[in-house]
Design a protein around this nucleic acid. Sequence first.
DNA 1: AGACGTTATGCTATGATTGACATAACGAAA
DNA 2: TTTCGTTATGTCAATCATAGCATAACGTCT
Lengths: 111, 111
Amino acid sequence: MKVNYKIWLENEQGERVMGKGLLVLLSLIEQTGSINKAAKVLGMSYRAAWGKLNKAEEELGYDLIERRSGGRGGGGSRLTEKGNRLLDKFNKFSNKVDQELNTMFLDFFNK
Amino acid sequence: MKVNYKIWLENEQGERVMGKGLLVLLSLIEQTGSINKAAKVLGMSYRAAWGKLNKAEEELGYDLIERRSGGRGGGGSRLTEKGNRLLDKFNKFSNKVDQELNTMFLDFFNK
DNA sequence: AGACGTTATGCTATGATTGACATAACGAAA
DNA sequence: TTTCGTTATGTCAATCATAGCATAACGTCT
């Protein structure tokens, strides 16, 4: 017997604007410099990644990444300042939750 | 901005054997004395409730409820001892998680 | 034997979410 | 002006979860 969970952030309308999927995607965009490469690493289509990002940005009301198309190398994307802050906060938060949840689970279920 | 989450218990195979939906359903079965009545209260079909219960019991490897069909009133169902214990534990656990999670969220996001 | 309300279970329809395909636009460099 | 890899976006298909329908069995009481 073990515990599992999903956690996410919502805006005022209850739409989910940040979760673990988006967290990983954003991290990889920052690392690789493009949505396309990040999607490939995750084994998802560019279309799916693009949709996720768009939806999140729309529901947040601000941009998470800066996009350039064209130019040398075709362009690319990088996190905005706000995107970076949200990513960092949620990352730390979810790590903390992970820790605490496991502790609580052991308290309740393993003796 | 607010936080939301889903939490559940899994068996060794990673199949989910207890969550908030089942928690409420089991509580109502204990209160009403039948799967049928509990399902009606929740606005779900008997078929759906029955499926949930079956799946959970199969994956747990033991019975959560005792079922009788036929007889006066048609029969009914009530929690087994083990079912009651699991229900109680998960209830307390998820209440605790609820509390802690909100505290953590405020720590991280509301200043 | 008949009635009643419950449990038991297969099957189908429906809706929602996800994924794949196709095509266009972009802009710097050669 | 051609090339290249990226972003942008509509559309259709497929997959999956859920709802509902239909039918059978059960057992006590009248």
